[in-house]
């Protein structure tokens, strides 16, 4: 069934909201009850990276075979991915305010994520500034590959080389060592899947809407 993934994502979302708020979470100093923010903040970033990966996949597909459908999908995946990233940064700022002391801490991962989002915002600026449809699609597909290649080191590599307060980066093993215990994994992984599927669903709605728009403007 084509719509099955939508029902799965809804069921998982209800489960992670119930379980994320009610099940036992590790008792940690400073974090206290906010440790549960992990269930909602981190899946935004995982969702963003997964959506951007599909976006760059369609960008490469477009460069190999220039069909406008590939371009459309590439843009919409990048679009929803950026929305996830903005939610990730906002939730992160709120969380940081109460655990690190200020919303913007100059943390390498925080800065890197912000730069990555700016790189993707430039992608939309680029698209908006080219009139020729074919040229727009080709240029933005090439830029999409560049943006993806810039995002990976900004989020995953540089924060690990320097000192980051994000768990699992720099000299801070954090969640990996003992915090993200089996109880948290039971909610965290379904949360990643649920939000990613919701993202795919919204992308499909946007793609169908744009296809309708194109069909109507042709007639």
């Amino acid at each position: 069934m084509k719509n099955l993934y939508k029902y799965i994502s809804v069921a998982l979302l209800v489960y992670i909201h119930l379980g994320g708020l009610l099940l036992e979470a590790p008792r940690l100093n400073i974090l206290n009850e906010t440790v549960r923010a992990l269930y909602f903040h981190v899946p935004m970033w995982f969702g963003m990276v997964l959506l951007y990966s599909i976006s760059v996949y369609y960008a490469i597909k477009f460069l190999r075979n220039p069909l406008s459908d590939f371009d459309l999908k590439s843009v919409e995946y990048a679009n929803v991915g950026t929305a996830f990233g903005i939610l990730g940064i906002l939730t992160g700022m709120l969380w940081a305010n109460y655990t690190w002391g200020s919303p913007w801490h100059g943390d390498p991962k925080q800065n890197g994520a912000a730069i990555a989002l700016l790189v993707y915002l430039a992608y939309f600026v680029l698209r908006g500034s080219v009139d020729n449809e074919e040229q727009k699609a080709r240029l933005s597909a090439v830029y999409n590959i560049f943006a993806f290649a810039a995002m990976i080191p900004l989020i995953f590599i540089i924060p690990r080389l320097t000192d980051s307060m994000h768990p699992g980066n720099g000299g801070n093993p954090g969640f990996n060592a003992y915090d993200l215990d089996s109880r948290m994994r039971l909610i965290f992984y379904p949360a990643v899947i649920a939000w990613f599927l919701i993202g795919v669903w919204i992308v499909s709605l946007r793609v169908r809407y744009r296809l309708l728009q194109n069909q109507l403007s042709e007639n």
């Binding site: 939508k6 209800v14 909201h17 919701i198 669903w201 919204i202 709605l205 169908r208 809407y209």
Partner: peptide, 18 residues
């Protein structure tokens, strides 16, 4: 949960409309 389910119902409605 009310907010979440509300948004999901909205998404389903949008899906049907399209």
């Amino acid at each position: 949960l009310i907010v979440l389910i509300g948004f999901i119902l909205y998404l389903f409605a949008l899906d049907r409309k399209i």
